[in-house]
Design a protein around this nucleic acid. Structure first.
Lengths: 150, 150
DNA sequence: CCGTATCCTTTCGGATACTG
DNA sequence: CAGTATCCGAAAGGATACGG
């Protein structure tokens, strides 16, 4: 896909007062986008948060997260392992035992993500308030339209 | 949906050495999860990054991002507006003119996200290297299986 | 115990056409 | 110009069954 690797969204951007925003998020093949996708997908952060505490086995994670399907836990762990966030250790015993633990890179990522978590906790009231206002205003518009026969 | 609002993923967790990871990400109705979803969706960050520079009109954003469809720009802006990140100002003129600008909350979020961007830039080589190792190791496994008649 | 393979539903997002 | 409405294909993710 993407038969032209050249001009996705930057274009020629001649004399514009260009900011550095696009250095990091313009194309999908951008590193930042990929990490962001990993961070934001439904389960990765949960896994990282749990493993930041201690090493865990597959079934432990499965049980603690529990909304997760076996398939998605596997997929999530494989992605995290591939990106170097998680180390997977297979113990050749029966029944099989597989340990998962965070790498230094994974721990570092988790620490960084925490600042976002803190931000969210600190501002969740502002957000809730904003949503309240928006929804209220929007409901009024709908009512007005209905009354006016639209 | 979710007919039982009680036990989604915490369960009873009796005497486990429980960490605080789940305070912020266990359920989908959690604030952090919602903000994360917004941050990670395909276009929000791009919009925020552009608006952090200056106020822009709908068509300006459309042109600058340009991979985006009209529909998704509208949807993205509405979500950001609802969450209090973006302020939408309609000027009652013809042809219509609508300005979008970041609120203080939006600017604050953008600043916070930057730390993640910086982290990614700083570690993208580690990640690329990890992927290289993983893919190489994985390819060997496949070859071994094939040779062994699997 | 730790997965993989398959199927199937749900969601996301692009294309297109139409309005004030 | 700045949207809304509708349709449709692609992808994410859950359920289930099976394998080493």
């Amino acid at each position: 896909m993407r038969e032209d690797g050249t001009s996705k969204s930057l274009g020629t951007h001649e004399g514009t007062d260009w900011n550095d925003a696009f250095q990091w998020d313009a194309r999908e093949d951008c590193e930042v986008r990929q990490i962001l996708d990993r961070i934001a997908d439904k389960w990765s952060l949960l896994v990282i948060a749990l493993l930041d505490d201690r090493t865990m086995r597959f079934t432990e994670l499965k049980r603690l997260i529990d909304g997760i399907s076996q398939r998605m836990l596997t997929v999530t762990l494989r992605q995290l392992e591939r990106d170097g966030m998680v180390r997977r250790t297979v113990h050749p015993v029966v029944p099989p035992r597989v340990d998962y633990e965070l790498t230094d890179l994974g721990r570092s990522l988790h620490a960084t993500v925490q600042s976002l978590v803190v931000w969210t906790e600190r501002h969740q009231e502002d957000i809730a308030e904003a949503r309240g206002r928006y929804d209220k205003a929007n409901a009024e518009v709908l009512v007005t339209e209905a009354v006016g026969g639209h």
